[in-house]
């Protein structure tokens, strides 16, 4: 391991980080397409949102499982707390996203409206926060 301080690693495995990119990007874009739908009433924008949310949930589902494993396995005090916070943020993100997927299955205007917009904002904010917490945290190894 050249040029890396010995005994410190990023919290997330590279594959975990890669999976996390999906909810971060897709929930963010889903919020944008929701806003566009509410401004235009052009149905294709809410269709985009529906698929984006499902994509975010698929990637985010794997992230959720992995984050829980990480939180349970965190023995060292230095990263136990951030791991728990990370798992909690991911869980809220994912549950809000799941409810939003059902909200977006309603027809026409009801697929977004106020409820869908709020859920999209929650999913995006928690995805970004979780990613922030994860990427600023390192874990020490013996």
């Amino acid at each position: 391991m050249p040029n890396r301080p010995t005994g410190v690693r990023p919290l997330l495995h590279p594959l975990h980080g890669l999976l996390l990119a999906f909810p971060v990007a897709l929930f963010t874009v889903a919020l944008l397409t929701d806003i566009t739908y509410l401004q235009t009433a052009e149905i294709q924008w809410t269709n985009f949102s529906s698929w984006l949310i499902v994509g975010a949930l698929l990637g985010g589902g794997l992230v959720l499982i992995w984050s829980i494993i990480l939180a349970i396995g965190a023995r060292r005090r230095t990263h136990r707390q951030p791991s728990l916070i990370y798992a909690l943020l991911i869980a809220i993100m994912w549950i809000a996203g799941l409810i939003n997927a059902f909200q977006h299955s309603q027809d026409a205007w009801s697929s977004v409206d106020v409820t869908g917009l709020i859920l999209s904002i929650i999913s995006m904010v928690f995805a970004l926060s979780a990613s922030w917490v994860a990427h600023r945290t390192v874990r020490e190894i013996a």
Partner: peptide, 8 residues
């Protein structure tokens, strides 16, 4: 062509 216009 839809339930209530959800295909535009």
């Amino acid at each position: 062509n839809s339930n209530v216009g959800e295909r535009g």
